[in-house]
Amino acid sequence: MIGDRMDILAPILLQFLELLMALALAPLLTGWVNQCRAWLQNRSAPPLLQPYRQLAKLFEKEVVLAHNASSLFRAAPYVIFACMALAAAIVPTLSTDLPFGPAADAIALVGIFALARVFIALAGMDVGTSFGSLGARREMLIGFLAEPALLMVFFTASLISQSTSLSTIVSTLARGEFTIYPSLAFAGIAFSMVSLAENARVPVDNPTTHLELTMIHEAMILEYSGRHLALIEWAAALKLYAYSCLGLALFFPWGIPQAAEFANLPVALAGLLFKLGIGGFLLAVIETVSAKMRIFRAPEFLGTAFMLAVLAMLVHLLLETGK
């Protein structure tokens, strides 16, 4: 009897564990990337736990709202945070057997990111400052190319595994007979380009800038303060975490256990941390070696990513369908 109940309970518990772990680990990943970047750039690095302190401080602070900020402005941080938390929770990291999994497949995941994007852009336009609408416009410019590119990356994986369900995709890639998928090479490059753009990273945007000519993400959230800003910063960290886990799940899926058993947990967790550590370091390397593009190079950059993702699909149909 107890065993039966555990069979039902274990995945649900694990699901909540994944959500909590995402919430807890996301700022750590951001801190790690910042630290690596500082090392690579010969600066003295901020402590690893700096993002947590920042969040705690922001939650303590008072919220200052612009006079004409509407209720949408106050609601948006919660919506964005919830979207990102949900996205981070449905990406298989510790197990592929997630009870929330069927609620949203890969296409719906793209939808969640898009929903958050729309809300953050609207919030940017709400106060009616010149910077806010500038950021919103640029964010939507990046979004309209990054979103289909991401969708096409998922399509490639879906064509391989005959499914759009993230769990099935990951199990097929991780546990099927070993096969080399050249299409995933294309998809991987497209995915990296999209993630750089979506997470406001260097060649497209700079997360630390406040310079008028360059900022995108920062311009939209200029008017936020206190707990609202904390939620948005946390959501940004969650987004980076979700994208990293997604990249790992699609292109390096080895080590994600199938069944939701607690015995597998330590190994899976260690594997995840290891992979995230490497991924974060690589991100810092990319950010260090590349220069920020002009804003009008960004559509070209993302257009290239989109084309590569389409090409990935074609390569799959041509080389891997096996006639």
Binding site: E60, A66, L222
Partner: peptide, 16 residues
């Protein structure tokens, strides 16, 4: 756990 305080003020807009 924190507070619900909020204050209205002029928009900041990078100090323009």
């Amino acid at each position: 756990y924190w507070h619900g305080r909020a204050r209205r003020s002029a928009a900041w807009d990078c100090g323009f």
